[in-house]
Simulated assay, not measured.
Amino acid sequence: MFDGTLNAAIGDGTELDRLRARYDGLLADPPILPGDEALAELAGMARIFDLDGSRPPAEVWRDLRAVLTRQGGSAPATRAAVPAHRTLTLMVVEDDPGMASDLTEMLTAAGHGVVGPFSDAAAARTAAGLYALDLALLDINLAGEGDGVDLARTLTRTWGVPVIFLTGNVEAAARHARLAAALVLKPYGGRDVLDAIARTVAGGAAAS
């Protein structure tokens, strides 16, 4: 599903700028269609991200744009790791026990405080009222009642906690990209998560 080469290119900002210049005309009224070569590239990216490429190009690019913008950001400078003195209190919500454990261990080793990990939205929602959270790392698809999208709405609207989605569900991430300060697609590495945290802090969405 996921192409690490494209991820690295998007992460440096220049590739995202190129794609915006090439495809943003599709979102104009009336749409400006790119050439056949550009449409073939768009279809290829849709396949990489498991998006339905049979839809009109404007719909495909709308979803891809949302995902790539939240995933990579646009400023290479924001990809620096969060400085050691910037200790954050992070909520982790992930229903895969192995991934939750690895993520918690990585964040703790980086010097951050971790609330959780929680495997369901209900427990995380309760904890949100008990801790001063700087940022929440949420899977979108969760077992039990409620999902990561509903939880993200509660955290952002009720508690003012910014959210990073950690997910393999690209279509859901695209539909709800505005709820998230950043997006990390599975499978991910520790550096991907720390870079997303750094971008969120640098952008002012999370406390430093």
Rank of each mutant, 00 (worst) to 15 (best):
G148V: 08
A174S: 06
V201W: 07
A77P: 11
M99K: 01
S74V: 15
D102V: 15
F49D: 00
G25P: 03
A28M: 06
P34M: 08
M91S: 03
G148S: 03
T5A: 15
L194G: 06
R47N: 13
L26V: 09
V93N: 08
P56T: 12
V60Y: 04
Y23E: 00
M99C: 12
L135P: 02
T69L: 14
T78N: 15
R178P: 03
F165H: 10
A43Q: 04
L42D: 11
A84L: 12
R191M: 13
G148K: 00
G53M: 09
R62E: 13
A43E: 06
M45R: 03
G168W: 03
K186P: 10
A77K: 15
G111S: 08
A109K: 14
A110G: 10
T14K: 14
L138F: 00
S101F: 15
V170G: 00
V67Q: 01
E41K: 07
I164V: 05
G129F: 14
F49S: 08
L166I: 08
D195I: 11
M99E: 14
R65P: 03
L183M: 05
L130E: 15
A38N: 04
V114R: 02
A109C: 12
L130R: 15
D52A: 07
D63G: 00
S208P: 13
T87K: 11
E105F: 13
A81Y: 10
L26I: 06
D147I: 01
A81T: 14
